[in-house]
């Protein structure tokens, strides 16, 4: 199982060149059954990453380009009267795929956004009073442009919270960029991807195994300590109060799940504080940040300040 996972990872990394950490995070997010938000400038490889993930895992995949005039029914689906059979037939929208790529989600109107996000939260959609269960695994990858771009509707916090992780790819380094420029075309790369490494059942069993990755009391306490610091509940003398939005228990759960997946990719059946640290920024930064637009690549983010304030070995009795 581990081998397959590494094979998938190397496949993805071969497509999204020079971003191994982000690739790994994306995979962890998928394995932890969370949804992924990729925020970056256009042309940084967001779509490529999403495609690579979907195709490698042999999941059904559809991409939807969100625009300002996109309607909820365009995403979810619609019942249309068939004049021949004299019946309403359901035309399923792109959301009925296992992997849904919602490109530039912040271009759509809030109404459409919320339709998608509701489906993400509940794993089911209701059309004309009939509830349809969405397929499993169900994984939404949304991309968004930075909010200072024109014509965007920022996602409200409540909806941001539904994404387990937010990652941004950033500019590649020199070597990576070289190989990006030298590779022929996207099509050729994509074609190599279409060899199914695992089946859906394996993926689901992986997800189940991840839920059993052991988290010791010390780890749980670590997560609690991180959350409490963000809420200003536990302040040591050394650290000033960190101004941020408080982390909800749901955020804590997401953090734990993501860290478990991270540990699993690392071939471990137990959690280390290192796992929490590795995923903390991507899981929590978008939940903490007061002004999403401003702090993008700045070091010394809120996440880091929170991590610095907590004693790793003895989290609650610091």
């Amino acid at each position: 199982m581990q081998k397959t996972l590494l094979a998938i990872l190397s496949q993805i990394e071969s497509v999204v060149i020079g971003k191994p950490h982000e690739c790994r995070l994306a995979l962890a997010c998928l394995l932890a059954q969370g949804h992924l938000l990729i925020e970056d400038l256009p042309g940084m490889g967001k779509t490529t990453l999403a495609q690579a993930l979907a195709k490698n895992l042999s999941l059904s995949y559809q991409r939807t380009q969100f625009t300002s005039d996109l309607l909820p029914s365009d995403v979810i689906g619609i019942s249309i009267f068939n004049s021949e059979t004299k019946q309403f037939e359901l035309h399923k929208g792109p959301i009925f795929n296992q992997v849904v790529l919602a490109d530039e989600i912040n271009r759509a109107s809030p109404k459409t956004q919320s339709a998608l996000l509701e489906a993400m939260a509940e794993n089911q959609v209701s059309i004309d009073g009939i509830t349809h269960i969405l397929p499993r695994p169900f994984f939404v990858i949304a991309t968004q442009n930075p909010l200072f771009h024109a014509g965007t509707y920022p996602l409200p916090e409540s909806q941001l919270d539904r994404f387990m992780m937010k990652i941004s790819l950033g500019f590649p380094d020199i070597d990576a960029e070289k190989s990006i420029l030298l590779s022929n075309n996207v099509q050729a790369t994509e074609s190599t991807l279409i060899n199914d490494i695992i089946c859906v059942d394996t993926l689901i069993s992986m997800q189940n195994t991840i839920e059993n990755v052991h988290a010791s009391t010390s780890i749980i306490e670590y997560i609690i300590a991180l959350c409490r610091i963000s809420r200003g509940q536990e302040m040591t003398e050394k650290t000033d109060k960190i101004v941020c939005k408080p982390l909800s228990p749901r955020a804590g759960k997401a953090l734990l799940a993501a860290a478990r997946a991270w540990a699993f990719i690392d071939n471990r059946d137990y959690l280390l504080p290192d796992d929490i640290k590795a995923v903390f920024y991507n899981v929590c930064e978008h939940r903490l940040d007061l002004n999403i637009t401003e702090q993008q690549h700045v070091s010394g983010s809120i996440s880091e300040r929170i991590l610095d304030a907590v004693n790793v070995l003895n989290p609650l009795n610091a």
Partner: peptide, 8 residues
């Protein structure tokens, strides 16, 4: 440093 993990 207290915030450093054992492995680091």
């Amino acid at each position: 440093p207290v915030n450093m993990t054992a492995f680091d």
